[in-house]
Amino acid sequence: MTEEELRQRVTVAKKFMAALPFCHALDMRIDEAGISEAVMSMPYNPMTVGDPDTGVVHGGAVSALMDTCCGFAVNLHPECVSPTATIDLRMDYMRPAKPGERIFAKAHVYKATRTVAFVRAIAYENDPENPVATATGAFVFSKSSKSGKADAPTKSGAVA
């Protein structure tokens, strides 16, 4: 994917994201977009608190950010040609998110077959080395048929 193609893709994805009511409700934003990877974040919001005693954000809200960011990373895969959907997403919660702080999610597609994109993501406040949560997911994926011609398809049968 050329710089120009990536820019176009990001522009389209940003518009798409802005039109998603649930992402809008949680005030999510796109921070970084690259080939097959993305960083998104959402501000601390008292409405998303899951534990009123500590003010810690509900895991479900972090999960929503992770799911969105993973889907966005799939959209940024060079061979992605149609909208994606989550097949499954596993969240591992390492520690409570710090109350009052913006939460970031960083996702990357580590493998895409003709039909499935496998994605990993982490959530953190400021240090990716100290994650709040990690996620692993499988997403619906359709590879462009054109790309098959360009980089001669492998016949190893390694495609799931």
Binding site: P21, F22, C23, A61, A64, G71, P83
Partner: peptide, 24 residues
Amino acid sequence: EDKLIGNPAIPAIHGGATASFLET
């Protein structure tokens, strides 16, 4: 509610809303 929508084209409830609901 409309705010739960993830993809307005289908329209479908956002996977994050579904996950939040199940976890709750």
